[in-house]
Design a protein around this nucleic acid. Sequence first.
DNA 1: GCCAACGTTGGC
DNA 2: GCCAACGTTGGC
Length: 157
Amino acid sequence: MQYWLMKSEPDVYSLADLEREQHTIWDGVRNYQARNLMRDSMQVGDQVLFYHSNARPPGVAGLATVAQTGLADPSQFDPQSPYFDPKASPDNPRWITVKLSYQDRFKRFVPLDELKAHPELSELMVIRRGARLSVQPVSAADFKLICQLGNSPGTGS
DNA sequence: GCCAACGTTGGC
DNA sequence: GCCAACGTTGGC
């Protein structure tokens, strides 16, 4: 089991949206490093910190789990989509993603400032300036601590 | 709205 | 294959 942090702009897709829908295909990722992590490293059952970026304040809103892997992002085939990729075809998809399931909303939203204030989290990618990667690996210890800060049981116990 | 950091593109 | 120009991300 591995742990991840995944960013979403809440104006576009928030944890509340995932809670309402319960499941979502994580579409629109157009960065090769993020794609490779989802395609090659994520496994069903992995735990995800759902991070709100471009928000005031930015921070971790809750938890999701990886429900399915190896999915072709449908938006790459849709000419109407802003994520359309003319070089991709159903026979030869370029953008592989995962399906997430809603797990939990933190009782306490954990803002970025608070993550930065914890010396234990100094290795956490998201606190570093310019860490734009939208899918980031998180250590088990960091995941557990962040769940505690959010006053969420997670499943890390 | 600013701008630093980073990724991608394309001319050569 | 280098690298300048450009576009995007995302905190502030």
